[in-house]
Design a protein around this nucleic acid. Structure first.
Length: 614
RNA sequence: GGUCCCGUAGCUCAGCUGGAUAGAGCAACAGAUUUCUAAUCUGUGGGUCACAGGUUCGAAUCCUGUCGGGAUCACCA
């Protein structure tokens, strides 16, 4: 909407020309609902009061002058009235309300439907690499990954909609002691079983052996210390941390041995590691497919974990890094309010940040991107601060484009999800549960008797995932989410199915209309709710830009919900197919179509499908 | 202990680049279906915006402090 800029510029020009001062942008927003009778948009100019006072000028007059200039520019057609409203005291308020004519809004709607596009955002220069998911291969995906994947996928869609070129990448933490524990337990207790032979999904299969590893540790400790069944917590009973005491067991020795063999490139070990990871990837891919998330490129820690050594060398040369007396290489970030950080161990091996430095550089060489976004939980805020700052100190310009899309933990009502709390946090179980609830509720409704079995199943998936995804995305990323499986999956109110239902309703009307409204009579008078919807539709691209700039898909979710709510109000208040006049019918059908298009588009940005019937 | 994040209705959340009387959903209660999908709509009740100062014509929003919750401060990842 051009007029916002116009007003801002006019005010700026005025102050520059008459007083020689630069003023900040005055924000112009949709009017507060209670003042809708006064206009469509409002802005408050009190911020300029000080400047006016300094120059002994009457602010009220200035603003009115600017307002009438703008009004004149609109050639009397679009802007119905620009009224300045002043309270009795003049100082308390100071709003200008802008009201556009019905014709103006009708034309906005018409151009939307004529272009067939819901936004007119043009492609922008700017290559973005977005990393998300980042699973460990020793256990299945859990609810935290679900939030991560929803955020990552949606964020990439939002950035694309905002005109950027986005490449989605995943990184698999596929090496290290954790996966070796699964392998060790498999060797110990697997008896050659496979996901195929057991019918267990590959990632769960391998994850089960990770759990099994813990049980074997327990059993071996019980044997070693001759503990009876009355001892519940072995590590606690022995008065040591689990991570410490487990090192005494033969099974741990096996895992450690496997790790050393793996690092030495032992063919047999690597073959087994590849086989088990292969099962895991099969399982992950199944879940990715169900969720509809994807990646253009996969990275594997086993390929990248040795990266970064050259950067260490460079950093030493540039005196950004220092070699400590014990041989470890460090960066001193205390001047920046952070700590001293080891970037290379004294034995010359990498730490976590070493490979992240190397991987970042690798990606820059591959993609030459302007921005790199990491979707990672907020427990790593500090790590990414250090990573970005270190790369900046090394003189990499592109490091300025690093952004950590940090998100809060997903917690159960009783606190953090722990794996021992059982199945509630498992991603696949959660998805299955949500589909089950969707099926149950849909059957209660009894509206899809004409569906085939496949169609019904597809619908359960659309609705169930819609509920889950919307739940995870409608909250600001930085906030933690309390997830109660019993209560969180809802289909009423501020939910995905509510928005989906609205879409299905519109589709139903359009099916019955049997006409395609290709043009509307722009002279038609608009009802209040009609104006509101059209205005809301026009706001959509601003919302995309906001969500993109703030890295916040929840803005899209809230917008989609509000638009759907507004449409339901419209639906309840006005007749569409049986409107009094043809002109009204065409108008309302057009509003319906444009709303459906926008809802579908917005939900797609959230990774959520919309059904034509439900 | 240092640093960072959070605290808005019983619950889950919007609003936070300062602006008009702080908004939604859920839950509770009361209504609406001879008419386009009632997974909907309309209405009622519900608030010391954690607390205390400060800046300002104006503060949920900015600053300082306090309290409460969480994260982090590894030669783990």
């Amino acid at each position: 909407m051009e007029f916002k800029k116009e007003i801002q510029e006019s005010l700026k020009d005025y102050f520059k020309a008459n007083f020689g001062v630069d003023i900040p942008n005055i924000s112009i927003s949709q009017i507060n609902p209670d003042f809708r009778h006064l206009g469509d948009y409002a802005f408050n100019f009190n911020a300029l009061r000080k400047i006016a006072k300094e120059h002994n000028a009457d602010l009220k007059e200035i603003v009115l002058t600017v307002a009438s200039t703008i009004l004149a520019k609109q050639e009397g057609e679009a802007v119905e009235s620009i009224r300045a409203q002043f309270a009795a005291t003049d100082l308390d308020k100071g709003f200008i309300n802008l009201k556009f004519s019905d014709q103006f809004w009708a034309k906005q709607l018409q151009s939307k439907i004529a272009s067939g596009k819901v936004t007119s955002i043009a492609p922008k220069a700017g290559k973005v690499v977005l990393e998300y998911c980042g699973p460990n291969t020793n256990k299945p995906l859990h609810i935290g990954h679900l939030r991560n994947m929803m955020l990552g996928f949606s964020m990439s869609e939002v950035l694309k909609a905002d005109g950027y070129d986005v490449t989605k990448v995943n990184i698999y933490n596929d090496r290290g002691i954790a996966i070796c524990k699964s392998i060790a337990a498999y060797l110990h207790a697997g008896n050659g079983a496979t996901p195929q032979s057991t019918g267990i999904k590959g990632d769960h299969f391998v994850g089960d052996y990770y759990v099994e590893f813990g049980k074997i540790v327990d059993a071996q400790l019980r044997e070693k210390y001759a503990l009876g069944a009355e001892v519940e917590n072995v590590a606690k009973h022995l008065g040591k941390e689990r991570e410490v005491i487990e090192q005494e067991t033969p099974i741990f020795a096996l895992a450690k041995d496997l790790l050393l063999k793996w690092e030495a490139g032992d063919a047999e070990t690597i073959a087994l590691w590849q086989k088990m990871n292969g099962w895991v990837y099969e399982g992950f891919n199944e879940t990715f497919n169900t969720l509809g998330v994807d990646f253009e490129k996969d990275y594997f820690e086993s390929d990248t974990y040795k990266l970064g050594k050259e950067i260490i060398e460079l950093g030493l040369q540039k005196n950004v890094f220092k070699r400590r007396a014990d041989g470890a290489v460090i960066i001193d970030l205390t001047p920046d309010g952070l700590d001293e950080k080891v970037v290379l161990r004294s034995d010359g091996t990498s730490v976590y940040i070493t490979q992240d430095l190397g991987t970042a550089e690798l990606r820059h060489n591959e993609f030459n991107m302007d921005r790199m976004i990491y979707v990672v939980g907020n427990e790593q805020d500090y790590h990414f601060k250090v990573l970005k700052l270190t790369l900046q100190k090394l003189g990499y310009q592109w490091a300025d484009g690093i952004y950590h899309l940090s998100y809060g933990m997903v917690e159960s009502p009783t606190g953090r999800f722990k794996s021992r709390e059982g199945k509630t946090a498992d991603a696949d179980d959660l998805i299955a549960e949500v589909l089950r609830i969707a099926e149950e509720r849909t059957k209660e409704q009894g509206k899809i008797d004409d569906f085939t079995n496949d169609e019904a199943k597809a619908l359960y998936k659309t609705i169930g995932l819609g509920a889950l995804k919307f739940f995870l995305l409608r909250v600001n990323p930085y906030k933690k989410i309390i997830f109660n499986p019993e209560e969180s999956i809802d289909f009423h109110g501020q939910t995905g199915p509510f928005v989906q239902y609205t879409y299905a309703r519109i589709c139903s009307i359009i099916r019955k209309a049997a006409i395609t409204p290709d043009s509307i009579n722009v002279q038609t008078n608009l009802q209040g709710v009609e104006r509101q919807i059209i205005q809301q539709l026009c706001e959509y691209e601003n919302v995309i830009a906001d969500a993109s700039n703030k890295y916040d898909p929840s803005e899209i979710a809230n917008y989609a919900y509000n638009l759907a709510k507004l449409y339901n109000k419209f639906y309840g208040e006005l007749k569409i197919l049986s409107a009094d006049t043809d002109a009204e019918k065409h108008l309302r059908l057009t509003i319906s179509q444009a709303t459906a298009n926008t809802i579908k588009h917005a939900m797609k940005l959230l990774g959520i499908d919309v059904p034509e019937k439900m």
